[in-house]
Write a protein that binds this DNA or RNA. Structure first.
Length: 602
RNA sequence: GGCCCGGUAGCUCAGUUGGUUAGAGCGCUAGCCUGUCACGCUAGAGGCCGUGGGUUCAAGUCCCAUCCGGGUCGCCA
């Protein structure tokens, strides 16, 4: 029976931390065999742990028995190696390895665990599909890049805990089993055994609890907590995700922003050694939409949107004129300096791109470097009108304009906003290590829901309206702006928050504006309304998407890469094979009958 | 729910107009090699071409359905 106990072979150092300064020491390492290089008489085992890789050297002529044990090692065997750390000969130094100046001259090896051949190589240089990676996530996580991501995430959460602690925040846990909320995303439901037919909901966010904590006099709260939303997934959206959630009492918007700018600066400094200039720029929601066609503008590049509705209104081109007459707008972006990158064929394909955002089409005008002009619409306009557009767009040689005319202002703005981001990405102007943070403020309080044919809260029903707009609540609710703010990084919504309503009377008016009857408001939010009647401090807060923050800090494109065990697009876990069916007995105990089963085909 | 892309060896992929025995690199197995470091050399094993149906003399290739993975619109207070 081979000895596989660790006794007597516990590590003295992490593999990846060994350096020239340690040479001469007797060193024991524990880790996985990263690679076996058998040169006949001399054999190298690369042993890997979280910190990195160290070369262990076995010489047949020095110790044949030892060599023969090492010879049986395969990739991913778990081993303990003891020996003398030696400086490598100058010619043998591997400059590509942090430990490349030293090697461990093995005097003893113990195989702690053998390993089957892994389904894919534990190696950052080889691409592996998500399907295989996630089925064997524990192997995927062995890859140095994934270990780096997990360590980065740890760093971010530590910075958050330390920073908010230093600023007087208490970390308090709120329940995972809570009440289903009618507004917002679909809830994940948890059946109650004790209360047949009744369900808990997993929290979409700890929103109500943290506000109640303010009523409790906690003053400043923070929590790093899981949130659940049963909606479709995206590269930056998982059904369970983590928020850095915080709330403060006796504050106004600027106070919340100030404390969070401090946090962001700290994170960027500690994690990336990047200095963030404070205060961060701010844009109102209206300005963000008008200039960037997005409530999460990417300001790493220009190509800002301009309005030519006034010129279009009086022209004879039906598409432009018609859009304005229908109450819409005509807007454009100038991809200045890149007209040569857009041959006719490419431009035609871009029309399909904007159509996914409901635009009807894409008009364009190109001024080549030699001064020759081509356009899909100029022939319908007068010379003066063309000149006016060129002037409005600040158009010069090698510029290309893209124009969207639409009866819906939102459609025109959003489709051009998406186009400017897409083109910047293709032109390589959206650099990952260029960090553009900004606040978007003054969000609309309400938005129209086609599905429900009524106004719904854009943020949530506890968001305070701006003081100067309160009077409009009953008269022109669609014009009411909220004390809500989002923090945006490189076109990605990192987090958002608001100042909350702390006044019962105003909250009542808000529920009324949202179309809640008094009974319905009491039924859904009675506990809050009651709580607020006992003395509520002015308060507000913010919540960050921790996964997105980590993704952007790590320069990645998917939050899956900073989540240890993520779900795939259909919200299942390929490793655990869940969700899954359960025993009839379990269902029976919960008083649940399944009426429809998923079609499964193996 | 809609649209787009993909599924071929353990992994990453190629596979022409439908036409002999479906290939490559990596990995794996065995042998050789005393300083490699993406070690090298030699040999070998390894395929339900996602699944089901259809068209055809003939399907990895064309058609339909379906499952799986990715992106995205809707959705995400």
């Amino acid at each position: 029976m081979m000895e596989t106990s660790l006794t007597g072979m516990k590590r003295t150092h992490m593999c990846g931390e060994l350096r020239l300064a340690d040479a001469g020491q007797t060193v024991t390492v524990n880790g996985w065999v990263d690679r076996v290089r058998d040169n006949g008489g001399v054999l190298f085992l690369l042993v890997r742990d979280r910190a990195g890789v160290i070369q262990c050297t076995f010489d047949k002529s020095v110790n044949a028995d030892l060599f023969n044990i090492a010879f049986t090692c395969r990739t991913e065997f778990v081993v303990a190696v003891r020996g003398t750390l030696a400086a490598r000969d100058e010619a043998a130094v591997n400059k590509k390895m942090p430990t490349g100046e030293v090697e461990l001259i093995a005097g003893e090896i113990r195989i702690l665990s053998k390993a089957e051949t892994t389904p894919f190589e534990i190696d950052d240089t080889k691409e592996v599909g998500d399907q295989v990676r996630l089925k064997y996530r524990y192997l995927d996580l062995r890859r140095p890049s994934m270990q780096k991501n997990m360590m980065l995430r740890h760093r971010v959460t530590q910075v958050a805990r330390n920073y908010f602690d230093e600023n007087g925040f208490l970390e308090i846990e709120t329940p995972m089993l809570t009440k289903s909320t009618p507004e917002g995303a679909r809830d994940y439901l948890v059946p109650s055994r004790v209360h047949p037919g009744k369900f808990y909901a997993l929290p979409q966010s700890p929103q109500q609890y943290k506000q109640l904590l303010m009523l409790s006099g906690v003053d400043r709260y923070m929590q790093i907590t899981r949130c659940f939303r049963d909606e479709d997934l995206r590269a930056d959206r998982q059904p369970e995700f983590t928020q850095i959630d915080l709330e403060m009492s006796f504050v106004e918007q600027d106070d919340v922003i100030a404390v969070n700018e401090g946090f962001l600066a700290r994170v960027f400094k500690d994690v990336l050694d990047v200095d963030i200039q404070l205060p961060l720029p701010r844009l109102t929601w209206r300005e963000a939409m008008d200039r960037f066609g997005s409530d999460k503008p990417d300001t790493r590049f220009g190509f800002e949107i301009r309005d030519i509705s006034d010129i279009a209104a009086s022209c004879e081109f039906g598409v432009f004129k018609g859009a304005v007459e229908a109450g819409g707008t005509v807007r454009l972006i100038n991809i200045n300096g890149y007209a040569d990158k857009f041959p006719r064929k490419e431009i035609d394909k871009l029309a399909d791109f904007v159509k996914t955002y409901r635009a009807k089409g894409l008009a364009w005008m190109k001024l080549a470097a030699d001064g020759s002009m081509t356009s899909s619409f100029a022939k319908f306009l007068t010379e003066d009108e063309v000149s006016a557009i060129k002037e409005r767009a600040d158009m010069h040689e090698n510029d290309v304009l893209f124009v969207v005319a639409d009866a819906s202002e939102e459609t025109a703005l959003v489709s051009l906003g998406a186009l400017r981001c897409e083109l910047a990405k293709r032109l390589g102007l959206a650099k990952k290590d260029d960090y553009k943070l900004l606040w978007v403020t003054e969000f609309p309080q309400f938005e129209y829901s086609e599905e429900e044919d009524r106004l719904v809260a854009k943020h949530h029903p506890f968001t305070a309206p701006m003081d100067e707009d309160i009077a409009l609540l009953e008269t022109e609710p669609q014009k009411v702006r909220a004390k809500a703010y989002d923090i945006i990084l490189n076109g990605c919504e990192l987090g958002g928050g608001s100042i909350r309503i702390h006044d019962s009377e105003l909250q009542t008016r808000m529920f009324r504006a949202l179309g809640f009857t008094e009974e319905k408001a009491k039924e859904q939010f009675g506990h809050l309304i009651t709580a607020f009647s006992y003395g509520a401090p002015p308060h507000g807060g913010l919540a960050y998407g921790l996964d997105r923050l980590c993704m952007l800090l790590a320069g990645l494109d998917s939050i899956r890469d900073v989540i240890a065990f993520p779900k795939v697009q259909n919200a299942s876990d390929l490793m655990m094979s869940c969700p899954d069916t359960v025993d009839e007995k379990q269902l029976d105990e919960l008083s649940i009958a399944v009426t429809r089963m998923e079609k499964t085909e193996e």
